[in-house]
Amino acid sequence: MFTATRLNRRSYRTQSLAKAVFFLMTVALVIPVLIIVGTLVVKGGPAISWEFLFTAPRDNMTAGGILPALVGTIWLVVVALLASVPVGVAAALYLSEYAPDNLLTRTINLAIINLAGVPSIVHALFGVGAFVYFFNMQQSILAAGLTLAIMTLPVVIVATRESLQAVPHAFREACWNMGATRWQTIRKVVLPNSISGILTGVILEVSRTAGETAPIMFTGAAAFLAFLPESVFDQTMAMSYHLYYTATQATDVPEQLTFGVALVLIAIVLAMNATSIGFRVYLRGLKKW
């Protein structure tokens, strides 16, 4: 009575097949990551030393370390963060908490989605036109950082809006019904409950800019500078551009050195991601609902 029919068996076969395909796809996703990280560690690992991290390149980039590039990347990420976070968070607050559902809002949302899809080289050219020439910033950390900021703005907005939307609507309703204004509601209830998600999401998104090459290439990155940048108006070396340069432009660069640069770059990005994910997990544990 309760034995499997032919139809049952066929359903099971289909479902095992589906499961197997999905599993293989998941594995296929992990393999490249393992290969990339593995290759970098094996080939670039031996290059890593205190000297590598804390000295400038020598002999036409064929020897020495990466200090100016490392410092430059930190400058760029900080400038990009400082520029994109206030603007992005404010815009997300407007879109999530104030904006009425009308044509204008929908247009803005569409624009944000499209902005996220603009290729980075186009952002780079925009940066050259707008910051380097129009605002006369020359090639500088400021111009490059702002270009990165523009590029990350859409994802900052999206990440922030998601965190804001994750705050249950009932909380807002409770506030409004006690006569709180929108801003009082945001400040007392919405932000305290979403700030952790906003911060971590934003760090996660902006850390990706550390790896971008195209947007900084024409706006502020230099192939070689023997000194560290002293202000945002200086040009700078950057990890991503340094990697591009040592891998394709400079001659006679030992393979180990190039892989070492790549390894440090990926380590910076992964470390930032891990920190922000860890931070998020920790803060989520503190949530009270």
């Binding site: 309703e173 506030c175 006690m178 204004t181």
Partner: peptide, 20 residues
């Protein structure tokens, strides 16, 4: 509106205490 909401309290179907 703030005065309206202040003087006319509302209780909902599902209790909605704030997470404080």
């Amino acid at each position: 509106l703030v005065q309206v909401r202040k003087q006319i309290g509302m209780v909902f179907q599902r209790p909605n205490p704030l997470p404080i």
